[in-house]
Amino acid sequence: MNIPRYLGVFAVLVVGTILTYYAATVDLDFIFPGANTLVALLIAFTKMTCVMLFFMHVYWSPRLIWLSAVASFFWLAIMFAYTMQDYLTRDIGVFMQ
């Protein structure tokens, strides 16, 4: 990848940072509660994908490296999912009692 393309990715990251700041100043709860967090996470996820694919060269790497990258997200998903199963069911009570 040549330098102009690297600069292009860098520009995307800078724009993402500015967007994160801007999104934090606007109350998005009118869409649904916690929408601000979701927007911030989406921007962060996009930025991270750019870093991984281009700065860390995953885009040009063999399939095994792709598998490793996907596996790390899968593991992150496990952590979030199993933690959330606690938070989302904590207030239900014992057998709906």
Partner: peptide, 18 residues
Amino acid sequence: GFLVWGHHMFVSGQSIYA
């Protein structure tokens, strides 16, 4: 091994369903 960590937390206040 990555799917069982909550067994350290049965009496912590963790949801009974978890």
